[in-house]
Simulated scan of single mutants.
Amino acid sequence: MIDRLSQGLLFITLRLGRMLLVILVVLVGTFLLLRLAPGDPALTMASAAGLDDPAYVERLRHEMGLDRPLPSQLASYLGGVLQGDLGFSHRNQTAVWALIAERLPATLLLLLSAFVLSSVAGIGLGVLAASSRQRSGRLDRVVGVVALLLYATPAFWLALLLVILFSIALGVLPAFGMESVGAGLRGWAHAWDVAQHLLLPCVSLSFVFLAVYVQLTRSAMLEAFTQDFVRTARAKGASEQRVLLAHVLRNALLPVTTYAGLQLGQLASASLLVEVVYAWPGIGRLLYESLEARDYPLLLGVFLVISVLVLLGNLISELCCYLADPRLASGGAQ
């Protein structure tokens, strides 16, 4: 027990150390890429305000720290991040963290909803397809065709189609935003209003990943059906339901769990287009707005938060695999 606990602590410590190293590389890499990109954020901001006075532009560059040497800018930024300061958005005249904290709950709600929908529905359809393959195989073919169509459909194109169908043609679901503006709803009425606004973005974001879950679960289960432990369980008189759930599905979930951690990173990137299409007030739309305005501190802050979300998803995935299969203990700590 003590040896297992020490291996687990070493596993977590090494993963956390790797996370910090990746975050440092992301911070330095994105900072240098943005600073070396053509264009002047101060000039862009001055032009947007209708002021092209060189003295005003130079004052803006001084306030934004752009007139300092690049190594000094990088050291100052990294020092601020270590103290929890992500910088100041001169375009919005507020702290970067305040802007991100305001938008982050909406993004987390969208990401978690899409994650739950795609994983639960995808695993369920994968189980149905694999179990059907053991019998007639008709349902397996239908699920396979549907999964292929969903995987080949771009998320932004599906989002536009859903808006046209359910919002414009049928008028049953709202097309834009997170809640009804000026409605003043409270309690369950407000929750129902948010859920209605969430449905279309969630479906648009989750369908591609749902198809991957279907194929992964189906392939892993079909492979598990051919293993010796399944034949042994059947020889001992275990029911087909117990073989399916306790033996086949349990072993098939390991590759699915690994993909689930990677999915968070893909969800974070795919949510950018979905949030723009639906005007969803999350950090994906904030990233688009800051990129359009060349707001470097805000861009760096959003990149940092997305990187942390991706790395946390990967860490949770690795921990789930570690707990599901004790044989990973020796290899996971290396």
Rank of each mutant, 00 (worst) to 15 (best):
S6F: 08
S6V: 12
S6M: 10
L10E: 05
F11Q: 03
I12T: 11
L14C: 05
R18M: 08
L20S: 13
L21Q: 09
L24R: 10
L33D: 04
L34N: 05
G39L: 13
D40C: 01
P41W: 11
A42V: 06
L43Q: 11
A49Q: 15
D52C: 03
A55E: 14
A55W: 05
R59H: 03
L60H: 04
E63Y: 02
E63H: 02
G65R: 07
D67F: 05
R68N: 03
L70E: 14
P71V: 09
P71C: 08
Q73M: 00
L74F: 00
G80Y: 12
V81N: 08
D85P: 11
D85M: 10
N92Q: 11
A95E: 15
I100Y: 00
A101L: 11
L104F: 06
T107A: 09
T107H: 08
S118A: 13
A121N: 04
G122F: 05
L125N: 04
L125A: 14
L125I: 07
S132C: 07
S132E: 10
L139P: 00
R141Q: 09
V145K: 06
L148F: 15
L149N: 09
A152C: 02
F156R: 07
W157M: 10
A159G: 14
L161H: 04
L161I: 08
L162D: 01
V163Q: 14
I164L: 12
S167Y: 05
I168H: 04
G171S: 01
G171W: 03
V172R: 09
A175N: 03
A175M: 04
A175E: 04
G177F: 05
M178L: 06
E179C: 01
S180N: 06
S180C: 06
G182K: 11
R186T: 13
H190G: 00
A191C: 01
H197N: 15
L198E: 03
L200D: 00
P201T: 14
P201R: 14
C202T: 15
S204H: 07
L210P: 06
V212C: 09
V212P: 06
A220F: 09
L222V: 05
F225D: 04
T226S: 11
T232S: 09
T232L: 03
T232Y: 11
A233G: 11
R234F: 04
A235I: 11
G237Q: 10
E240G: 14
E240V: 10
Q241G: 06
L245D: 04
L253C: 10
L254P: 01
V256L: 01
T258A: 15
Y259H: 13
G261L: 15
G261N: 15
G261Y: 14
G265L: 06
S269R: 11
A270M: 11
S271T: 07
L272Q: 01
V277H: 01
G282F: 09
D295V: 02
L298I: 07
L299K: 09
G301P: 05
V305S: 00
I306G: 04
G313K: 00
N314D: 00
N314S: 07
I316L: 12
E318Q: 15
L319T: 12
C320N: 13
C321D: 05
P326H: 14
L328K: 10
L328W: 11
A329F: 00
G331T: 14
